[in-house]
Design a binder for these strands. Structure first.
Lengths: 339, 339
DNA sequence: TTGAAAGCGGTACCAA
DNA sequence: TTGGTACCGCTTTCAA
């Protein structure tokens, strides 16, 4: 119960406990030995004065914070959120905090946030975005903090690169659909100008091409949201193309695709099959439960940012992820009559 | 392109620009006048040295940060996420940042996070949780920062209280279902020991009682997730009760309820009606699109935390929210035969 | 075992 | 228009 309106400081505590600030610091940080009696006295004052150390003063003096940063393209997409959640829970266990920032797929925002994160003197930074800026590497070059990139690989000895092999994943999806008998495939993407997302679309096209003209196909794109998936699918139908299967660049958009297909009066998977990507936790609760490929990287990121004593460091490594196809109920054979 | 490994400081910039640190500070903060020529010179050095001010030093010296805090019970629930998103985008527009923390409905975690937030010398704090600790008010008493509470009202002159009138909302839902002809209602909740959630359940029971024994009912509860909704609904069916309508304490759980109802071989809304609460953005993309009641408070919170010059301050006010019933496709008349 | 004091990297007031 | 300087609250030698 502080009497004055200014928050308690370490010095206030020191005075009340009749010791020096240094001693209080030692007690609080368990650094250096302190007589048990003094320790308890200090702790007691801390306890009932409601003292809370100023995190900024602490970080400034110490030179490094217990905060991890995470920059994502779109927090609304549960894919990013799932990662954030694992990172947050892992880091709380080890006394770290996490701050997130959103770029909305804007390279400019990415740069702004990287700057702000640098200003925070973080313990580590995870950059899970699809957009890129060539100057980003320069900006990061002088920071000694651990950095993890996902998808947009950046060659730098400080960075860990986690990369999902989307080419393989997409090929597997296309082959699976073909094996079911599908011959007219569509791809629904978003921000296909951005490299990692472009990769997904290109992989789709390549996989289709491998079947030697056996397949008809189309691609559309819209915003990264269920509404975007819905709108893209409407465009698809409006174009006159009648796919028997739709491959989505992610699960979130697939949710909207499902809706658009139904509003067209078609059923899933009898008339149209749908495949997502990411295996977000909601995918299981879509209707029908969504076929997708998985790729949970949250804990991997924690490990890279907060290496355990005995684990081999993930430093400067490139970590490949092989997504696995998860077949649920949105995929099946195409309708017998060509529709 | 910094040459040494230690990040640039304001003093480094000052040296290179051949001015005093004070001047650099003035330029960067646009405070006090500086000759145009010097200004440009400083800016140039800043530009190509990649200098990024240390946020901690800045906050420490200035006494207050440009960071808002937000504590929520469960970030996985899109209800909280939607709020976070609006708050984040509003605050970036005004040069603020946001840090979030999760409590997982644990009062203990709430207290921990409030402590950490206090240590951050925030510009404002939003506490959007269902759990409560009596000592929380003490802990917050000495902080002069703007605080917004949602749902768990706390009497304090520094706090803005946003409160949704769930009693009214629930009554409206129950009446709506009755008017459709439903006579066997179930309630699916979570953490019903926590006051705000208990309120929702109690409101349901009271609304049912108002119909004078005309209605049969049951209540179940599980975790705040689709899986929790699914599991709760399974329990419900296992108990032998055969509701024609299920009222959920929120949309996220409703997603799982839908799944559980379907796996029972029943259709929605022909056999069972389902109602959610919160109107999360995903509700529209559920199948069928979910009937719910709305309640978007994100921007309200921004306004309370970062009052605009001309807006009347939301200070110390109690702000009541009246949710509105949003009827979509998960509700309809009960089956003609009692099943 | 404890205390004094020098920073950490900024801001802001007072002089010049 | 500028520079000097005293903090902001904490950590960390170095002495005592």
């Amino acid at each position: 119960m502080a009497r004055d309106s200014r928050p308690m400081t370490l010095e206030d505590v020191a005075k009340r406990a009749k010791v020096s600030p240094a001693t209080v610091s030692r007690v609080l940080n368990k650094t250096g030995r302190v007589k048990e009696a003094t320790r308890l006295r200090v702790l007691k004052v801390v306890e009932n004065s409601g003292y809370q150390p100023n995190i900024h003063a602490r970080t400034l003096a110490h030179g490094r914070s217990r905060t991890l940063g995470m920059i994502v393209s779109n927090l609304r997409n549960p894919f990013f959120l799932d990662i954030f959640q694992s990172l947050e829970s892992d880091s709380h266990k080890r006394g770290y905090e996490v701050v997130v920032a959103n770029t909305d797929y804007e390279p400019k925002q990415l740069m702004t946030h990287v700057g702000l994160m640098r200003g925070r003197r973080l313990a580590g930074l995870a950059i899970i975005v699809s957009e890129m800026e060539p100057t980003l590497i320069d900006k990061l070059a002088d920071s000694r903090m651990p950095i993890v990139f996902y998808d947009v690989g950046v060659a730098h000895h400080h960075c860990t690169n986690i990369k999902t092999d989307y080419a393989k994943a997409t090929r597997r999806v296309v082959e699976y659909l073909c094996s079911l008998g599908h011959r007219r495939l569509a791809f629904v993407g978003h921000h296909t100008g951005l490299e990692p997302l472009h990769t997904r679309q290109r992989s789709f096209l390549e996989a289709v091409k491998e079947r030697c003209g056996e397949l008809e196909h189309a691609t559309v794109a819209d915003a990264d949201s269920p509404a975007g998936g819905q709108s893209a699918t409407r465009q698809l139908f409006a174009s006159g193309f009648k796919p028997t299967a739709i491959v989505c660049c992610n699960d979130l958009m697939a949710l909207g695709v499902l809706k658009a297909v139904r509003e067209r009066g078609l059923s899933i998977p009898e008339d149209v099959s749908v495949v997502g990507c990411d295996n977000i936790s909601l995918a299981e609760f879509a209707y029908p439960p969504l076929t997708t490929s998985n790729d949970r990287i949250g804990h991997l990121i924690s490990q890279a940012l907060m290496p355990e004593g005995d684990t081999s460091p993930l430093w400067g490594r490139e970590i490949p992820i092989e997504p696995e196809l998860i077949i649920r109920d949105t995929t099946g054979p195409p309708p017998a009559n060509g529709r």
